[in-house]
Amino acid sequence: MANVLVERAGTDVVLLRLNRPEARNALSPELREELRDLFLALDRDESCRAIVITGDMRAFAAGADIKAMAEATPAEMMERDDETNWAAIRNCRKPVIAAVNGYALGGGCELAMHCDIIIAGKSARFGQPEVKLGIMPGAGGTQRLTRAIGKFRAMQLLLTGDFLSAEEAHVAGLVSSVSEDDAVVGDALALAARIAALPPLAVEEIKRVVLTGMDMPLEAALKLEMRSAYLLFGTADKGEAMRAFVEKRPAVFTGK
């Protein structure tokens, strides 16, 4: 049985559905490898312009697979080369939307934070409870959570293992928007379709500049932004978009 189900939602959007319901979609090594291969393929797939990733109503992903880690040694953890799996998601040029129902804990919360937008159902819960198992986040939980919600709120969550409700996560800045539980995936797909209908090169460059600029001094990031903005003036889609605006007609974008 596939650990990740792949569905086409229209012509430009791909839905990835984590498929380990018996384990609340815990991120087993096999599941992470499947995600890696899918993201590498979708990054190269010109017909894919946006990706939505989700779980089920009980859990987006309730952390890593504890059974697979219980007896693991440091050397064995390093041999898994999990960084390669996460890098495939982190470096994907397509916009990625997390549609979160239920629990997004530990590695599940880290997976959501690897995405560009997070839409949460009202009953969703977010957290990094690794401390309760005598370990700590290892796929960005300490760093991405701190950047998203600030040092003091992040420290409280990381050091206690407490959860945030969907509304608390939204107020804190971790979640983009909150939907009714049964509307989460539909809302995420609708948003993905809106983004997929826009000029792909502009979408890709905005994502790249935002993520790269976050770790740069402001002046350097502003120069990166300006250079990238000017480069988009050389694209065919820029010409098409502006002509369509002047001519009051729908634009047709080719990603060129």
Results as ranks from 00 to 15, higher is better:
residue 25 N to C: 02
residue 213 G to W: 05
residue 97 I to D: 08
residue 187 D to M: 04
residue 80 R to E: 00
residue 143 Q to S: 10
residue 206 I to M: 13
residue 178 V to R: 12
residue 84 T to C: 01
residue 238 K to G: 00
residue 202 A to I: 11
residue 55 G to W: 06
residue 153 R to N: 12
residue 99 A to I: 09
residue 79 E to D: 08
residue 249 R to M: 09
residue 234 G to D: 06
residue 1 M to G: 11
residue 136 M to V: 10
residue 168 E to K: 14
residue 83 E to I: 00
residue 58 R to M: 09
residue 141 G to I: 05
residue 247 E to R: 15
residue 223 K to T: 11
residue 110 E to Y: 05
residue 36 R to M: 07
residue 198 L to C: 09
residue 219 E to Y: 00
residue 256 K to I: 04
residue 65 D to W: 03
residue 14 V to R: 15
residue 46 E to C: 02
residue 91 N to R: 12
residue 193 A to F: 05
residue 209 V to W: 01
residue 100 V to P: 03
residue 210 V to K: 13
residue 159 L to T: 15
residue 130 E to S: 09
residue 141 G to D: 12
residue 12 D to S: 13
residue 117 I to E: 09
residue 217 P to A: 04
residue 88 A to T: 05
residue 1 M to I: 09
residue 153 R to P: 00
residue 119 I to S: 02
residue 70 A to K: 10
residue 198 L to V: 02
residue 148 A to P: 08
residue 148 A to S: 13
residue 71 E to V: 01
residue 191 L to I: 09
residue 12 D to Q: 13
residue 163 F to Y: 10
residue 50 A to N: 04
residue 86 W to S: 01
residue 212 T to A: 09
residue 68 A to I: 06
residue 31 L to I: 06
residue 90 R to F: 01
residue 200 P to A: 14
residue 108 G to E: 07
residue 150 G to R: 09
residue 256 K to M: 11
residue 6 V to P: 05
residue 97 I to R: 09
residue 169 A to C: 03
residue 93 R to C: 07
residue 213 G to T: 03
residue 195 I to D: 07
residue 245 F to T: 14
residue 198 L to I: 03
residue 2 A to D: 15
residue 25 N to F: 11
residue 193 A to W: 10
residue 240 E to R: 14
residue 251 A to N: 08
residue 252 V to S: 12
residue 44 R to N: 13
residue 110 E to I: 04
residue 87 A to Y: 03
residue 247 E to F: 07
residue 14 V to W: 11
residue 169 A to M: 04
residue 220 A to R: 05
residue 41 A to W: 06
residue 81 D to M: 05
residue 195 I to F: 02
residue 7 E to A: 08
residue 232 L to D: 07
residue 87 A to H: 03
residue 157 L to I: 13
residue 229 A to H: 13
residue 219 E to V: 00
residue 12 D to K: 14
residue 172 A to L: 14
residue 39 F to A: 04
residue 110 E to H: 04
residue 168 E to F: 07
residue 169 A to Y: 12
residue 195 I to R: 05
residue 32 R to N: 10
residue 241 A to P: 01
residue 23 A to R: 15
residue 11 T to N: 11
residue 173 G to N: 04
residue 189 L to Q: 13
residue 40 L to H: 08
residue 190 A to C: 05
residue 153 R to S: 10
residue 143 Q to E: 15
residue 184 V to K: 11
residue 191 L to P: 07
residue 219 E to S: 02
residue 219 E to N: 01
residue 74 P to Q: 11
residue 60 F to K: 06
residue 142 T to H: 11
residue 13 V to A: 06
residue 214 M to S: 02
residue 1 M to P: 11
residue 246 V to W: 08
residue 106 G to Y: 00
residue 61 A to Q: 06
residue 8 R to S: 14
residue 160 T to F: 11
residue 217 P to V: 05
residue 30 E to F: 01
residue 239 G to Q: 13
residue 170 H to M: 04
residue 161 G to A: 12
residue 87 A to D: 13
